[in-house]
Design a protein around this nucleic acid. Structure first.
Lengths: 153, 153
DNA sequence: TGACTAAGTTCACTTTCAAGACTTACTAGG
DNA sequence: CCTAGTAAGTCTTGAAAGTGAACTTAGTCA
């Protein structure tokens, strides 16, 4: 299988990675969640090749994860903002950050904390079941084929 | 910044991506969660270059996400199993899958469903606050510097 | 008209990946 | 002892992606 055919796989993870799985894309999204919006600001924060940044932003816009919005008309200047679809990636992003906190924080502790404004505390993400509200233990999950599964011969 | 210096960044997402951000790694982990264990089985499922698979498995073992265990002694044969650290990636993985379900499932629906054995239902993941138990809305989160933040000049 | 800014695009080189073949280690069985 | 088989790699070549820096474009403003 080739990386550039991931979007054709009957697998939601493959299709997701077709959009956000290239190098730097999740870090671009991290910055978008930290309210970075302009090309130069993404570039300054990440320090990556400008062509790579251009390509990542374009794909995210094409897939509706970010939207390119004019913030000035004379001359026309653009910024990139998260869409609802893009906001939907937040749980995955925060879960990755918290996993990194748990395993790679170092002696000083995590570099970034997340304050839940609703209750006023710094939080860790807990993944719960949409049906019963319990925290999910991967040992208590059984994957099974859904309607979009590839047919077995 | 170069991709191969991500682990040196004062950012948990960077450090996480240093471990799981290369091509195919999350798909290797997907298969591990689906109980694929042997090299040939990963290779058959993914269809990727054998050298790439070797490298991905090695890094995951080196970082303690998978463990390489002998399942036979004569001749010695190995399989790769998730560790507790590896199980900790489950929330992020499932969040990515459910995001893909929401946006790329197609007409038939998602290819794979997840049955929560505790309550007997297929579930979607809901990320909640560890402190108050409410579902997290990214608009109600404020990131702020933690103890491991890089010092400002 | 020249300087400036933002947002790209281009170039030469390096690194990573794809595809397939090949190698190694260690049997089991004749 | 030899051969065939299996699992898990390693190697080679060509293609694709990424790096780092310079350059270009568009549209101002003074």
């Amino acid at each position: 299988m080739r990386w550039d055919t991931l979007d054709c796989e009957a697998c939601s993870l493959s299709r997701t990675l077709a959009v956000i799985g290239d190098r730097w894309t999740l870090l671009v999204l991290r910055d978008a969640f930290l309210r970075v919006r302009r090309f130069e600001d993404f570039q300054a924060s990440l320090g990556i090749a400008r062509r790579v940044l251009t390509e990542r932003l374009k794909l995210l816009v094409d897939e509706g994860v970010l939207k390119k919005v004019a913030y000035q008309e004379r001359p026309p200047r653009y910024e990139y903002r998260l869409t609802e679809k893009g906001l939907g990636l937040y749980p995955a992003l925060v879960a990755l950050v918290h996993w990194g906190d748990a395993h790679y924080a170092g002696k000083k502790g995590p570099p970034l904390l997340h304050r839940h404004l609703t209750c006023g505390h710094d939080f860790r993400s807990v993944m719960t079941c949409s049906e019963c509200g319990e925290a999910i233990d991967p040992r208590e999950v059984k994957p099974h084929a859904g309607p979009g599964a590839k047919k077995r011969a």
